[in-house]
Nucleic acid binder design. Structure first.
Lengths: 353, 353
DNA sequence: CTGAAAGCGCTAACAC
DNA sequence: GTGTTAGCGCTTTCAG
């Protein structure tokens, strides 16, 4: 390959504007101590020459890399891509992350990391050494992996933990899971449902617990029982089906079910079909995620939207600002909305068959 | 921000192994002229110290950046993300691209570029100057934008053009659109259909034309007419609906329709529903793309799968090899498959109402 | 086969 | 306010 050199460097700009490299550097980095007149002259040269700083060189000289790294679970992400499940988590991350990075002259890179591997640390160290990101976004279950958070903290790399409230370093952002679950539950209560089942996510996601808490609190507030009405899955279809079957096989079966992911809700729909239960006439269903698939099921799913794009956008913003303003210590809550579609209705007047 | 330095550099490795920087560099880059014994010693130090080269430094000293850039249409991509349409084009690109990059120690970055803007060149130049990618993947409609291909060629940056057969620089890769369309058509013909409509994509995508060609050829081969049976959309739902309506309003309306995207096929389904046409009893439907949504429609869609992941993977591989082995001049065809689902059936015995 | 020197483009630290 | 100097970590010459 031809040894590619930078077409136009800071040196060219300096010569063109008749100033020192440093002054150009100051203008690029919007540093103070440059007279407006000079600044303008330099900027004019930059524009005319079409100069753009090389991020490699910037990074080399010890400044920022203008790179934000978003880390996702390797196995899960690949499985979703391969299965073409329609989960658009990564897309929404990119939507929120890339656009916000753009605004600040940053770039976002996505990395897949295997949490369960015993060499997470080495893997992550390698990535950090190679890329030198200015900030890292951790998504569950990485957000609560002490090997990862510890490494980042030790390296003094600002990072955000999505879906984690654990004390410790890093910005914590949640999508207000407890409140969302309560909201969904209240909605069903207001429709007259009294037996509302809940399918929780796996324990290694903190938000699984928060959602259960929200559901339970809303149920108790309404004076309704929760015993035996909570099953658990791993967010996937298979386990969702098992959980749904258990709930629907209860003697006094629920007239409504909230499931902690779209895939598990798909399973609820299937379980209902198997029993000739009509949704929403015989069974109301509310989902979590609001991925594209919810509009295509029969009936379309009422779902708690996860504001992924906005959450990542907030995270990016805080990470970029980190050098200037310290990271907030308090968790940040980006609230989700309940998007109503056809899968919920009034509780059936009669009891179950 | 704390001035972050590389934790362990090539210098540490050199000292640890008792050799010169150069030798370490040679080992890293798998260059010849290193005795196996020495190589092993150095590699041992690398492993022990957990050394990873800084890509910034590598890039700086004029070698590779280990970066492949994948460029997508800005407006379209953002619209799809925002609309949560379930299009997983970007995900499939990442699936194929990231994993293949990984294997070779490369990284893939996704960029959104606005083709229709009049400053594409400046925008792209800036990105290239900042990132210095070793290879670029162009997706339609960028693949055929001479401003872009010209710039890349001038800069001697290896690039791949997905979905383009135009002569000129860059590797050309297609998903064999003509053949796929013919295959879909033949399938319908074999089911007894004689009036098979086609909804083409927009003209600024070459592959739109190839698909029409494939359909027309198969129809002619079967001795069937095509007049008035080809409408056009922009891959989106709205225009798909218009096209579907036109076809279904024909006096001698088609008993089968092939549409050039899943979104347009969704529109065909809706148009059929509006007319109380049952799919597949009254109307058979075949789609292009095979995005996640096709499994959730009623009935699920028979679709031509676009092997995006594999195509991007091939492109990445060739791009990475570019310095060693010259880019192939001939186009590369990655063949798609027809995935059969419930939306096709035998042609109705009687004519239309 | 191995090593020493020079420099990539930029910014930090310091002088003026 | 502005310029000068000295690297950052690596690879590329070019010597041995």
């Amino acid at each position: 390959m031809a040894r590619r050199r930078q077409a136009v460097t800071i040196r060219h700009v300096a010569e063109d504007a008749g100033v020192s490299l440093q002054t150009v550097s100051r203008v690029i980095n919007k540093e103070p101590n440059v007279r407006p007149a000079m600044k303008e002259r330099v900027q004019a040269s930059i524009d005319r020459l079409g100069y753009v700083p090389s991020i490699a060189a910037q990074r080399m000289s010890g400044s920022r890399s203008y790179l934000i790294l978003a880390i996702n679970d390797r196995e899960k992400t690949i499985a979703e891509w391969r299965g073409r499940s329609g989960t658009d988590w990564v897309d929404q991350m990119l939507l929120g992350g890339m656009l916000t990075c753009d605004e600040h002259g940053y770039r976002m890179m996505v990395e897949l990391v295997d949490t369960h591997s015993d060499h997470v640390e080495r893997e992550l160290s390698a990535t950090i050494a190679a890329l030198q990101p200015d900030g890292v976004i951790l998504t569950p279950p990485h957000s609560e992996n002490p090997l990862i958070t510890g490494l980042l903290a030790k390296r003094h790399i600002p990072f955000a933990r999505i879906g984690s409230l654990d004390p410790g370093p890093g910005i914590r952002l949640t999508m207000d899971d407890e409140h969302s679950a309560a909201m969904a539950t209240e909605k069903l209560v207001s429709l007259g449902h009294r037996r509302i089942g809940f399918i929780a996510g796996p324990d290694d996601y903190s938000l699984s617990g928060w959602r259960v808490t929200g559901w339970r609190a809303a149920m108790e507030f309404a004076g309704l029982p929760t015993d035996g009405l909570c099953e658990k899955g791993d967010f996937g279809f298979e386990t969702g089906l098992e959980a749904a079957n258990k709930l629907l096989d209860l003697e006094d079966r629920p007239t409504a079910i909230i499931a902690s992911s779209d895939q598990m809700t798909l399973a609820v729909l299937e379980a209902a079909r198997d029993r000739n239960l009509k949704v929403p006439q015989d069974l109301s269903v509310i989902s979590f995620d609001n991925t594209p698939v919810v509009r295509f099921t029969d009936p379309p799913l009422t779902a708690v939207d996860q504001p992924i794009a906005e959450t990542i956008s907030r995270a990016v913003e805080l990470l970029i600002m980190a050098p200037k303003s310290p990271l907030p210590l308090e968790p940040i809550n980006v609230q989700g909305q309940l998007i109503e579609r056809g899968s919920i209705g009034p509780a059936p007047g009669a009891n179950d068959a």
